[in-house]
Design a binder for these strands. Sequence first.
DNA 1: GATTGACTTAGAGTGTACTCTAAGGATTAA
DNA 2: TTAATCCTTAGAGTACACTCTAAGTCAATC
Lengths: 125, 125
Amino acid sequence: MEVFINIQRFSALTNLSSHTIRYYEKIGVLKHIARNSSGHRFFTTKDIEWIQFVKRLKEMGMPLDNIKLYADLREQGESTAEQRKRLLQEHVVILEQRIALEALHLKKIKEKILYYENIIDVPKI
Amino acid sequence: MEVFINIQRFSALTNLSSHTIRYYEKIGVLKHIARNSSGHRFFTTKDIEWIQFVKRLKEMGMPLDNIKLYADLREQGESTAEQRKRLLQEHVVILEQRIALEALHLKKIKEKILYYENIIDVPKI
DNA sequence: GATTGACTTAGAGTGTACTCTAAGGATTAA
DNA sequence: TTAATCCTTAGAGTACACTCTAAGTCAATC
């Protein structure tokens, strides 16, 4: 007995609204989604794996344009592996810089909170 | 001799466009900006300190609505210090969670890059 | 005194990423 | 079998944070 993943179940499994799922297909982030005889989408475990990866890229702050580019490359097969790797490497650098900046901001804002607790003198910014 | 900071200089000093500066004043993130006799804005070092702090909050991912709320509280004086402190504390929690999530994503994506380098087996997501 | 250029305002337009609506067809429960 | 609830599409609307435009004022230079 085959497990049939319709858009509703896919939505529940991925925590994305069905609107968003259709939108991702429209812009090419989701590709080759199968349809049943009445034109309804059905999803596979491959689709779930892919969308989990898409969500990771999104949460890393990668814009949908770049995710779409990655999806396009993936569609073209093994020959684009090097390009995809480079896309990821570029984003790793961006994310490492962002984390470093956020850590600095965190430190400064914690100092400001100490000021509010009258423990240290007023920091300007 | 007084140093006169017009919108142009303020823009250069803060790395914000003059459009953005006017916008921040319009929505209440910048308050009580002084004007000269012909109605042109002039800024003080206090304004620079404040906008640097605003930029920090923004880079921490705080939405302008919240920054505006902080600005409103600040305008009301010392009695709101506790509330402002709480706003910052809440955002510290959010940022700590984000940094933790980003660190996890970074780890996973680096594993994926190792896969592209044929060093480890294929990770799904 | 004319031109250049920086300033003012209100308000329109843009990009990103959804989010929702309308109109209609298919499936399921009462 | 009829009503409710799914699904489909194209396309409109929303939220956020700018970003730009138009029309006009004002000061400084040629």
